[in-house]
Design a protein around this nucleic acid. Sequence first.
DNA 1: AGCTTTCGCTACGAGTCGTAGCGTAACTGT
DNA 2: ACAGTTACGCTACGACTCGTAGCGAAAGCT
Lengths: 211, 211
Amino acid sequence: MVNGMRCRSQAARTGRPRSAAADAAILAATRAALVELGWSKLTLGYVATLAGVAKTTLYRRWAGKNELVVDAVAELFDELELPDRGSLAADIEGVVLQFAAILDRPEAKTALMAVVAESTRDEPLRERIRTSIVDRQKRLVLEGRARAQARGELPPESDQAAADRTAALIFDVVAGAVVHRTLVSAEPADEEWVRSFTRILLLGLTGASGG
Amino acid sequence: MVNGMRCRSQAARTGRPRSAAADAAILAATRAALVELGWSKLTLGYVATLAGVAKTTLYRRWAGKNELVVDAVAELFDELELPDRGSLAADIEGVVLQFAAILDRPEAKTALMAVVAESTRDEPLRERIRTSIVDRQKRLVLEGRARAQARGELPPESDQAAADRTAALIFDVVAGAVVHRTLVSAEPADEEWVRSFTRILLLGLTGASGG
DNA sequence: AGCTTTCGCTACGAGTCGTAGCGTAACTGT
DNA sequence: ACAGTTACGCTACGACTCGTAGCGAAAGCT
């Protein structure tokens, strides 16, 4: 679980502690409000009402709507895992289907693009998104590659810098394609689509992995 | 140029005509306001002031902020072209670099993701984005493939439905990767990145044969 | 001319924002 | 038990934006 609040990191060992139950209620209420209203019509006052807390409590813990929604949506990605499915192709298909399932939720659809749009003018927000959402996805790419190299499906990397660049590229291709399919083209990333995508990606990887 | 206003399409041949200069001024002012304030802090009142028109004029022509920004940003994509660069690889690299250049503009960065996020809860808006922005990009994929088939770089398609699915897949991969690289990873889609991306995509498309 | 539509301007109620102030609740150390 | 410290719920507030209505004047057509 991500420690969303960074204020008073280790100060205040005294006094009344913050309610952990309130945190969970607020984040759940935020997701419910996203489903009901969407990003643009979501107000912190309504979230507070849904969560059964005072509006001021929200402002004491989060700087604003952006930060709150990032934390609320980040929890959706807790379920992302990469079980060993025996082959690189199966691993890719599995994780892409998981990612697509998360993106299919209405709260993720309306919130993810919105906070990314906001982050283009808010560097701290971009960093928060990176650490609590993006990096967690990116790690799966690294795990998948290491596993494929252990199987002998991909050659080991010699140049570390080049390996990092390639991993970043693959990540942008995979995540970008699923997001674009789901949100821009607005069509489901179902099994058939994932199979086609994986086939093209794998052909591109096994042929180009030398550089 | 996209005809953004769909109301009174052929009625009202009489009376004072709408000022075309005001339209251009409003769209330019919208882009300027996006650069200055970003999506979330942009208000129609400020756009009206920038454009030198009354706020009510904005509401007479556009249903709201979403529609206005879509029209304003759509004009950025007018410059997208696909000159024949001699090979499929060169064509892909060229159009991806063009697309990346557009996405690098601050007004496109902050607006595109925001309107896509809005469109997940607004079907007419999604349709507007599709016709005025997405389809224009998608046509380049079809042109590029037809050209590559004429050169013999890609085999002709037998099954039309399968060909459509493949084109849609390629489009999501290309556009998604560039968008994700630019907005989520927040790193430039420069020539080196585009070359790496194109190499992987081409290997995936042509099968592992040539390279 | 007469008709029609747009334009600029002003004003308005409604809603949201983020904050301040207050009294109370919860927990800690002596 | 008691004082100290912090979080909480509640109310109220000024500032701001929204989208609309109403008015008189301007611009075009027949």
